[in-house]
Amino acid sequence: MPRFLPALLPALALCLAVPFATAQQTDAPEAPPEAAAEPPMTLQRMAEIIRAIDPEAQPAGGAIQFTIDDIPVVVIADAAANRMRAMVPIRSAGGLTSAELMRLMQANFDTALDARYAVAQGRLWGVFIHPLSSLEKDQLLSAFVQTINVARTYGQTYSGGATVFGGGDSNGIYQELLEDLQKRGEEI
């Protein structure tokens, strides 16, 4: 485990009890059936999705560490706070110039999309932060793609990769990665 991770790993709760609202029956005519609603995201469900992506995923302290395309990803979640964070280490934050920091802030505004560049514990990270219970599976997979892409494109396009304008090849590459992750977790 990289030596900078232990300082960032808060306690990961073991389970999340999510109350389900029950619909009351009425005498109104039946509405057409809708697609089955996706269940709320829980720590257990998130761990199952991650294990479908990387069967060698490992709990580390209060987080789950795994790898996608040889890139380490760390997910920290807190059911009590209803938050999750997916993180990809990029580099040491030492030596970042004011021009580089300005470029990171610009990318956070327009090209990083839902992922963000962040500095913590002396390190530059690609991060995605979201409420846990409302997170859908495809949003989680997109979070992984975007955090990986902000790490990959650091120093170049600084892009989360979910939306790319122009006629280049980047969007196809990002879409292939998203589709691959979706296929690995189809049953979840």
Rank of each mutant, 00 (worst) to 15 (best):
Q25H: 11
G122D: 08
G168F: 07
Q65S: 11
S159Y: 03
D78W: 05
A60E: 06
I90Y: 04
D70H: 12
M105N: 12
N108H: 06
T147C: 14
I53K: 00
I90V: 10
F66R: 10
R51H: 15
A115D: 04
L178I: 07
G167S: 13
P10F: 08
M84N: 02
I188C: 09
F20A: 13
D69M: 05
F128S: 01
L113E: 15
R123N: 12
A37M: 10
L177M: 08
T163H: 15
E186H: 10
L14F: 10
S159C: 06
N149L: 12
R45Y: 07
Q139M: 13
V74P: 01
A80K: 15
A162E: 11
S142P: 03
V88T: 08
I49K: 00
I49Y: 04
L96T: 13
Q65F: 13
A79R: 01
R152E: 13
A35D: 15
R91G: 01
I64Q: 01
T111R: 13
G160D: 03
N171F: 04
E34L: 14
R116Q: 12
A79D: 05
L104P: 00
Y158E: 14
I64S: 01
L124V: 04
K137T: 14
L8F: 00
E100T: 14
M84K: 01
A47N: 07
M105W: 00
Y117C: 05
A31T: 12
A86I: 15
S133G: 06
P39S: 07
R152K: 15
I50L: 00
D180W: 00
P32Y: 08
A80R: 14
Q65I: 12
P39N: 10
M1D: 13
I129R: 09
F109Q: 14
R51E: 12
P29E: 11
I64L: 14
A17F: 02
Q146T: 11
L140R: 02
V145R: 03
R123D: 04
G185T: 09
T163M: 12
